[in-house]
Amino acid sequence: MEVDKGKGEAEETRKVAEADRDTVTLKSSDGKLFEVSKEAAARLSTVLAGMIAGGSIDDNGTDLKQIGSEALENVVDYCNKHANSIPSAALISSSISFNTAPFKEPEEWERKFVDRLSHDALFDLVEAANFLGMERLLDVTCHKISEMMKGKSPDQIREVFNIKNDYTKEELEEIRQELAWAFYDD
């Protein structure tokens, strides 16, 4: 029901809303501004949560000099999508640390979110997630990278990730003898 308010009263409401904004503004290394849900940012990023709690968020754009605009855009997209999706119980409890199984499987939308990224964008996003302390986004992106390795021989993995084989001939022969099966292609 529409309530008739006086002009002054409406002005007051607007001011309060501004002071208690539900978004924060983040600035990428190349100076672009992005707005993200405060609740989602605090929930998904330990670094942003600390900044929000400590009052070190700048209304004109908090500088994140280590993160380029494309990666930051993906971070912000991820946070806002997360804010809009119904968070499942599995995502809320993040007491399990990054390097301890069992891992939470990415949800369908998270899978799609990382699947559309280019190779470089994916790694930019991993680095951004790591910098911002975003456990869940790290989980999702690292899961994606691990999928890129699955079922591949060492040569195929090197090709996918452009990794230089830095073993000496002797070392390689030693490993080949120890783990002959690891070298076969599927």
Binding site: D115, R116, L117, S118, H119, D120, A121, L122, F123, V126, E127, N130, K144, I145, M148, E159, V160, F161, N162, I163, K164
Partner: peptide, 17 residues
Amino acid sequence: PPPPLMGAGEDRISGLP
């Protein structure tokens, strides 16, 4: 976006901690 099957030439994964 190109599917992330191949890197463009740079070894990005070795840059990760």
